[in-house]
């Protein structure tokens, strides 16, 4: 079982330079003799380095935020609709007691935010929800035909902003569907 040093709780504050002189000396003295805490301190500093290396995002224009909001709203709608089963959440446990856990949680949130920004943000690589073919004015949830000789497809145009649902008529027995002998 891992031995827990009393000094360990001060390591994050020590790494951030937030300790008083007296406490800092006490920690330094302890670090000289405790390899466990020295390793822990290295880990905290390594973590801080990673956080500091996260690049700062360029300034974002209003229309870019509007587009981000729109795409995020569509994606949330889609996810909400897909969630057909109720999920029992595990009992939440507070993470703010331990400074290291708090740092890990903050890093996790940062990572998710950065990923979301990169994926669907104003400069995002994803243009919209993959499962739908709608623009802003219309989202196509499902599409089908029950007749032989027709193939329905949905398209979205950005300029002008319009969703088009097109039924392609195929040739059946030498006649274009819809103008064939069966039609009126």
């Amino acid at each position: 079982m891992k031995r827990v040093c009393r000094i360990e709780r001060y390591l994050t504050a020590y790494a951030d330079g937030e300790l008083s002189v007296r406490l800092r000396r006490k920690v330094e003295k302890h670090l000289a003799s405790c390899r466990e805490c020295a390793r822990e301190l290295d880990s905290i500093r390594g973590f801080d380095r990673i956080l500091n290396e996260v690049p700062t995002a360029p300034p974002v224009k209003d229309e870019q935020w509007a587009r981000f909001d729109r795409i995020l709203s569509q994606e949330l709608d889609r996810v909400e609709r897909k969630a057909s089963r109720p999920v029992r959440l595990r009992e939440a446990r507070p993470v703010y007691g331990d400074p290291r856990r708090r740092a890990l949680a903050a890093a996790g949130v940062c990572a998710v935010a950065v990923f979301a920004f990169v994926a669907i943000g104003p400069f995002g690589i994803m243009n919209g929800p993959a499962g739908s073919s709608g623009g802003n004015s219309c989202i196509v949830e499902s599409l089908e035909t029950l007749s032989v000789g027709y193939t329905p497809m949905a398209f979205t145009s950005n300029d002008p902003e319009m969703t088009i649902i097109w039924v392609f008529a195929e040739e059946v027995d030498g006649n274009i569907r819809g103008n064939g002998p069966g039609a009126m």
Binding site: G134, N136, S137, C138, I139, V140, E141, S142, L143, E144, T145, L146, S147, Y150, P152, A154, M162, T163, I164, I165, W166, V167, F168, A169, I176, R177, G178, N179
Partner: peptide, 25 residues
């Protein structure tokens, strides 16, 4: 009656969607 197209859409209130394709005279 023959069902040529069946679709479920979420159209913006007051918005327009274009449907088309079937040949007519």
């Amino acid at each position: 009656e023959e069902i040529i197209l069946r679709t479920k859409i979420r159209l913006e209130n007051g918005g327009t969607v274009l449907l088309g394709g079937p040949p007519i005279s």
